[in-house]
Amino acid sequence: MSDNPTRPLIEMAAVSKFFGDFQALRNIDLVVHKGERIVVCGPSGSGKSTLIRCINRLEKHNEGIITIDGIELTDKVADIDAVRREVGMVFQSFNLFPHMSIIKNLMIAQQLVRKTPKKEAREIAMHYLQRVKIPEQAEKYPIQLSGGQQQRVAIARALCMKPKIILFDEPTSALDPEMINEVLDVMVDLADEGMTMICVTHEMGFARSVADRIIFMDEGEIIEQASPADFFDNPENERTSAFLDQILKH
């Protein structure tokens, strides 16, 4: 896995995914290079979550090839583990471990997966808690934090594993409006530092200012890929314009 600067970090070629008879992804081609910031949007059920969940194998694709940093995703557990060490994920519902303190949430995978010694794991955890600006919450349990704080902890937890890519699945959709910005701020910081990110979100302000490329999906297909300027100002596809009209109306 030598770092070849020209090789894409994520390559999906003709990827399809079925749930029984239902086809959730149709022939997806997607290439993401190091440092790219991709925003994925589209109507509910269009396959956005399925797309990013295939990247870290939370879902198994049925056709096509997915290669992450040179590792092809197959049934091989060692390859799946290798990919998951490179790919972090942040969920809509935070998914913090409720029975562990915040600091423990950040340390556990470091200790188990990376075999980081406890002391060092704690230092790394505190470092990232500081970066998401809640070091004082370290000893609390998730339920004692606000939604925005919990989501920032979830981002810090992903960062503790030093991933090359972070996937976000609607990270602000479960938040009260007044907490959305504190989470988006953390994501903007990450983008500024050059993290490769794929972000499913309907926060169009964030998409416009942060994304290098916006992907619009509908019915399991990528309908349009464009820079924010083109995407918002001259969408090529009718379905994209219809979607934008819908979402920007609010």
């Binding site: 870290n56 583990d81 972090g88 969920f91 519902s93 998914n95 995978a109 188990l112 992903a158």
Partner: peptide
């Protein structure tokens, strides 16, 4: 046990055994 927590464990690279011991069993 909330399936989302097990997915979070998987996404962090935890093995099936780790998830069983540290997530499923206590909850």
């Amino acid at each position: 046990v909330d399936k989302g927590l097990l997915e979070a464990g998987s996404a962090l690279g935890m093995s099936a055994r780790h998830k069983l011991i540290y997530i499923t069993t206590p909850l």
